[in-house]
Write a protein that binds this DNA or RNA. Sequence first.
DNA 1: GTTACTAATGACCAACCGTTCATTACCTTT
DNA 2: AAAGGTAATGAACGGTTGGTCATTAGTAAC
Lengths: 200, 200
Amino acid sequence: MYNSVMDHEATPRRRVRDPEAHRTAILEAARAAFAERGYARATIRDIARRAGITHGLVMRHFGSKEQLFIAAMPGPKDLEELMPGPASTLPERIARAFIERMDRADGNDPFIALIRSAASDEPTVAGLYSAMRERSAAAYRTVVTGPDAEERIDLLASQLIGITFSRYVIGSGPLADMDSERLIEFLSASLRAVLQGPEP
Amino acid sequence: MYNSVMDHEATPRRRVRDPEAHRTAILEAARAAFAERGYARATIRDIARRAGITHGLVMRHFGSKEQLFIAAMPGPKDLEELMPGPASTLPERIARAFIERMDRADGNDPFIALIRSAASDEPTVAGLYSAMRERSAAAYRTVVTGPDAEERIDLLASQLIGITFSRYVIGSGPLADMDSERLIEFLSASLRAVLQGPEP
DNA sequence: GTTACTAATGACCAACCGTTCATTACCTTT
DNA sequence: AAAGGTAATGAACGGTTGGTCATTAGTAAC
């Protein structure tokens, strides 16, 4: 009477006792679920289903949905990989590092999962963008000079954010289908314009 | 026993009979709620509370949450305003039209509300970006020529998307604080680089 | 074979959601 | 003043969610 939904299966589930394997399976399933549905719409029951276990076990391993999200998502290290430190030939290096890393990432990549999750949850999206911007600033502050350096760096980050959504979040259309090398060329030209500033 | 949540108030609510005023109040409240919490997390009860009426009345006026969302959000006209048709001096006109329109918009602007909603809901974000891209293509296809015109247009759209998130969704940091005129100059230079393509 | 430990299960709960609908109160028309 | 129409209310419902917990079943040690 209380719960009209079947929360059980017809035949009792065969028990597999393997906590470590289950833990990693949950993390993988969580990344996929958060990426597909976003944090708010992803459910623990769905994550458990993907991992081939019950939702009670997910709670046992990670305590709460939020702790599971934190455990599944990447830390600052991944951002460092995306935007490596100062380089002499700036635009090309920045463009190449970003595009090549993102193009290589598969569906289970934690950074891709974070970006897709961010598209569905407000606190997450704010955190992601501030992280990307802060990382851009930390990486390029020493090589981007001038009185408006901070603004140029922010414009740089905004370009990366725009590419990210068009190519990796939506995942279809001309930009998504574009060859990596040509995209890097275009992005380099565009970043150079931003870093050099508006010249007549 | 069935519903443990209080769905009523202690003293009966004083009834105000004004369907038109209520309708517009609901639409305003809906834009605010969707912008703040995203489509999925926004609730009809909260929208009704903001509008000063009951959630039953929201259902009466708009039938369902989805229909309310559609009614509250802007149509293609707003995108036309954001990205006007072909112009001779492309980058400057594109940059100016976009930035000036967005900077002018207040918190209740339907387009701002749509963008903020998109940051919290997956179907919405996909719809928004495809709309922005299609509008970019329709607006600039006749003036952007060459074999890779579609890709350049898509890159243009991605830059607008990136600026949108950094400046208008997050709303803080160097790019958000930047003077409109300087931003237009920077964006023009960046768009020119994309539209002209990578030249050595 | 028995015991002890704990991984794993699944029934249950409280809260909240969108939606429905009988009831009520306001306003206009007679 | 009575009636009719309908704007507005709020109780109820079915469904889903994150979280709890008593029970069960694998497994290793003795």
